[in-house]
Simulated scan of single mutants.
Amino acid sequence: MSEQCLFCSIVAGQIPSMKVAEDEKTFAFMDINPASDGHLLVIPKRHSRDLLEIAPDDLAAVTLAAQRIAAVAVPALGADGVNLINCCGAAAWQSVFHFHLHVIPRYTDKDRDRLTLPWVPDVPGDRAAIAAVGERIVAALG
């Protein structure tokens, strides 16, 4: 646990939260700045800074907890879908440096859903540039 970490303080009960679920490895609570009705966060109890640092067993536990919660939350809230989002690094919008998954129920009713896409997903990229970047990743993987 990091003494300076907001989410570690929430797990320790030093900062109040609306807890949704908890198990041996994970803690889930409502996001106080929700993108939609029912937006919550699932975190590992053990501190890790981000996706690049989290232990594989904690990552698996958080992902499985998020899936279990989403499977219940979507029908319970009448949501039309759900996003699981992780932001890794300040440039990727990470604002709390303790790994977390956002579980964001999605609604066609925009009064319940304020999240919008930051890019247009149906605009094709340059295939040669995509292949070149892909090859760099393949080479880095070994």
Rank of each mutant, 00 (worst) to 15 (best):
Ala65Ser: 12
Ala55Cys: 10
Asn33Thr: 02
Pro75Asp: 13
Leu52Arg: 05
Tyr107Ser: 01
Ile32His: 05
Asp58Gln: 08
Arg46Leu: 10
Gly13Val: 07
His47Asp: 05
Arg49Asp: 02
Phe7Asp: 01
Leu101Asp: 01
Gly38Leu: 02
Ala21Lys: 01
Pro16Gln: 07
His47Val: 01
Gly38Ser: 08
Phe97Asn: 02
Gly134Glu: 06
Val138Phe: 11
Ala12Tyr: 08
Val72Trp: 14
Arg106Asp: 13
Gln94Met: 12
Lys25Asn: 03
Ile43Cys: 02
Leu141Gln: 13
Ala71Thr: 15
His39Asp: 00
Asp111Lys: 06
Gly89Asp: 15
Gln14His: 03
Ala140Met: 14
Thr63Pro: 10
Ser36Pro: 03
Asn83Leu: 15
Ala90Cys: 15
Pro56Phe: 01
Leu6Asn: 09
Arg112Asp: 01
Gly81Ser: 15
Lys110Leu: 09
Ala61Cys: 09
Phe99Ser: 00
Asp57Asn: 10
Val72His: 13
Thr116Glu: 03
Gly125Trp: 12
Ala60Arg: 04
Ala90Phe: 15
Ala28Gln: 01
Gln14Asn: 07
Ala131Thr: 07
Gln94Ser: 14
Leu51His: 05
Leu59Gln: 06
Ser9Thr: 11
Asn33Met: 04
Asp113Val: 00
Ile130Trp: 09
Glu24Leu: 00
Val62Ile: 11
Asp37Phe: 05
Ser95Ile: 14
Glu24Cys: 00
Gly142Cys: 06
Leu6Cys: 12
Leu64Pro: 04
Ser95Thr: 15
Ala21Glu: 00
Arg49Lys: 11
Ser48Val: 03
Val11Asp: 04
Asn86Arg: 14
Trp119Thr: 08
Ala35Gly: 12
Val120Glu: 10
Pro16Asn: 07
Ala79Tyr: 14
Leu59Lys: 04
Asp50Phe: 15
Pro34Ala: 07
His39Pro: 01
Arg136Pro: 12
Asp58Gly: 01
Asp122Asn: 04
Asp80Thr: 10
Ala92Met: 14
Ala132Lys: 09
Ser17Trp: 00
Val103Gln: 01
Ala132Trp: 08
Pro16Gly: 02
Leu77Cys: 13
Pro56Gly: 06
His98Pro: 00
His47Gly: 04
Ser48Trp: 09
Arg127Pro: 08
Ala90Leu: 15
Ala70Glu: 10
Arg114Trp: 10
Cys5Ser: 13
Ile85Lys: 12
Arg136Tyr: 12
Thr63Lys: 08
Ala66Gln: 05
Thr108His: 10
Ile69Pro: 07
Asn83Gln: 14
Asp37His: 10
Gly81Asp: 13
Lys25Leu: 00
Leu59Trp: 07
